[in-house]
Design a protein around this nucleic acid. Sequence first.
DNA 1: GTCTATAAGAAGATAGAC
DNA 2: GTCTATCTTCTTATAGAC
Lengths: 205, 205
Amino acid sequence: MNTKKRIIEEALILFSEKGYSDVYVNDIAKAVGIKAPSLYKHYKNKQEIFNAILEELKEGYVKHTATMGIAGNDVNIDAGIYADISEEALVEMGKNLFLYFLHDNQMRLFRKLLTIEQFRDSELAAIYSKQYFDAPLDYQSELFKIFIANGKFKQADAKILAMQFYAPIYTLLTICDRHPEREQEALKLLEAHIHQFNINYAEEK
Amino acid sequence: MNTKKRIIEEALILFSEKGYSDVYVNDIAKAVGIKAPSLYKHYKNKQEIFNAILEELKEGYVKHTATMGIAGNDVNIDAGIYADISEEALVEMGKNLFLYFLHDNQMRLFRKLLTIEQFRDSELAAIYSKQYFDAPLDYQSELFKIFIANGKFKQADAKILAMQFYAPIYTLLTICDRHPEREQEALKLLEAHIHQFNINYAEEK
DNA sequence: GTCTATAAGAAGATAGAC
DNA sequence: GTCTATCTTCTTATAGAC
């Protein structure tokens, strides 16, 4: 078994819950099932373990958006997928996004890590804002622009539409990160939100 | 000057940026302008300093909502204030909320502290969700219910309206906490959002 | 690569003079 | 109430055997 990989897996779980400083090399070793000094055969020191996690986070992002149900990085493909845009299709898009962000382990753990460490490290702050604000907004703006051009959506500022669609999803996500038991409640709110969003913006047929 | 109070003021600034564990009693003492051992004449230990901050946070919340421009805790009063609800009034309400949350020092520092520490302490997680999700949503739901009953807003689920109004405000707030230099951009998005919100829900006169 | 033993240093807290 | 000196404990990291 690949110990080097197991170390960053277990370390990520711990860091995402307690933050860098409150996780001791001993905790990581214990989670892996070895003694602390053995860690140093795989990584130079504790900071290198953290850096290795960060590298994985950066690499993983493209892969993640790519497997997200929506294509994620080519908006024209997705515009095709959602060509017959309907309330049901919108709901599915929103729920897919929400549930993927929430349930994918790597996404969830990285997000919690970024949340905890964002004010101590400006690079992490930048990654957070890009992954959970700018990138989703840019993507959905492009998508909604197409819908507006197609006459499927009413005329409006696509970026504002994107924010109105996405911000509730993001907000509910942060609630579920804190309180996993509130997922059902969040899902109901999410569906009602998208239902209302559709009423507001879908052009009558 | 009241050293006991200065300690928690300076400690809050430090905790909100670095989290509990990465702030050393020595840092706090230095910020106050005394030596570390002197802290222990005012507080039993480091944890007691943190607890004192938390107490202040809990006490402060009512006071804060009370001075928020909107009355905050009596929705009927606010419904009167915003009786002539118009796009301008809505924009002002949203901007007030946003700018108060963002610029009030105690609000901002407490929010950052809660953000950093939320996964280590379930009490903090509960306070966060209450202050930045449930309470604002409940309040705005009540307000919008009144507007709907008055015929000022279209018929719709008031809670969903509240979420659609508030979630973008909250989301932009988290962006500005990470990147204060993005405040102007956020304010423009906020205004455009409320403009669009008004188009969606204000009943034609 | 993993272990035991241990060094080196950091951080929280106390003792006791002023 | 503040200081200097110091203790104790915790944490990271290394040395060296297996």
